[in-house]
Design a protein around this nucleic acid. Structure first.
Length: 330
DNA sequence: GGGCCCGCAGGG
DNA sequence: CCCTGCGGGCCC
């Protein structure tokens, strides 16, 4: 028998998908023009800048990721984290040299010479991440090994948090598959807000976590959810990165990739995918037109990337303005 | 692989 | 100075 959790998950996925369709986000106009089968895939070849990610030569062995730990092996040659769980290609050896993926110039590792507030490896950040829209010099499709790198290049500032923003809405979000009822169609996706997790524990049993399972309802009072709501109202562009933990075929197998600008088309409250059905804030995003095509993993050859070009739609979605409905799946 | 715990960036 | 958070390294 199917678990309750699974039932909710499937119901939510169905609902989220229907929502995207109802918003016109999954319209036929968003179907691939033509599958770029094998022949001459339209990918940008781009050579990695010399200075980048080469066996950590730019990373002083004295200062590794955490304090004084690990001078035994440079982080770039030994990989232990689950980040590589689904990895089918060695990015460093196979892909980077001849890659469709622009690899960021910052490896995002702080050094002793770089203790400044902006955190870039070779100096302060060039641009303020607290801006709406694109960051000069960072192309769509740029890839980093860690969130730290995204932060250093101003694409998505927080090292952990999924949402970054200010008074006029979110600057950026990270898709990392933290909520498995979210739907990712590439050019559109649903996203779940923040909050409702028990990060601190109780006085008796204190915790100090960065993420945790859902244990209460989310609300739009939450700072981050409020930001995304604001984005929806003001239609500001939001930078989107996809991470390896997302199970979507539009997500990179490893690391994090900047996939360009999206807009929040709708915000609503719905039942979450958690066992107890705690409410979560949901958001529907749509990619802005006029950007480079997304990369997608080939389902037959999962290690391989193709870029898919889509027809662009006008954003007809501005059929004013059905207020967010209470979510009630089922 | 799971659990733990931590630094860090940002907003208020 | 308080809080949060879709990381990530490390130890088991």
């Amino acid at each position: 028998m199917v678990s309750e959790y699974e039932k909710t998950r499937l119901a939510n996925i169905k609902r989220n998908q229907e929502l995207l369709v109802s918003l016109g986000i999954d319209s036929p106009l968003l179907e691939p023009k033509e599958k770029p089968r094998k022949k001459n895939p339209v990918v940008k070849k781009r050579k990695l800048p010399e200075s980048t990610l080469n066996d950590g030569e730019s990373l002083p062995p004295t200062k590794a990721q955490r304090g004084e730990v690990s001078d035994s092996a440079p982080a770039s040659s030994v990989r232990r984290s689950t980040r590589n769980a689904g990895k089918l290609v060695d990015y460093k050896k196979e892909i980077i040299k001849d890659s469709p993926i622009p690899v960021a110039y910052s490896s995002g590792v702080k050094t002793s010479e770089n203790t400044g507030p902006m955190g870039r490896e070779d100096g302060p950040r060039k641009y303020d991440p607290k801006t709406y829209g694109s960051i000069p010099g960072i192309e769509v499709g740029t890839w980093w090994e860690t969130r730290q790198g995204c932060s250093a290049d101003s694409i998505h500032a927080p090292w952990v948090g999924g949402i970054s923003g200010g008074k006029q809405g979110a600057y950026s979000v990270a898709l990392s598959g933290g909520y498995d009822d979210d739907v990712d169609l590439g050019y559109a996706f649903t996203y779940t807000g923040s909050g409702g997790r028990d990060l601190k524990g109780t006085k008796a049993a204190p915790k100090n976590l960065r993420t945790a399972p859902q244990s209460s309802d989310q609300t739009f009072e939450n700072t981050f959810n409020k930001m995304l709501l604001r984005s929806c109202e003001l239609k500001k562009p939001v930078r989107v990165i996809r991470g390896f933990k997302s199970r979507s075929k539009y997500a990179p197998a490893e690391g994090y990739r900047y996939d360009g600008l999206y807009r929040v088309e709708k915000a609503w409250l719905g039942k979450g995918n958690n066992p107890k059905g705690y409410m979560v804030c949901k958001f529907a995003f749509k990619r802005l037109p006029g950007q480079p095509p997304l990369l997608v993993r080939d389902e037959d050859e999962p290690g391989k990337l193709e870029s898919i070009d889509y027809e662009e739609t006008d954003n007809k979605i501005d059929k004013e303005d059905s207020p967010p409905k209470e979510g009630n799946p089922e």
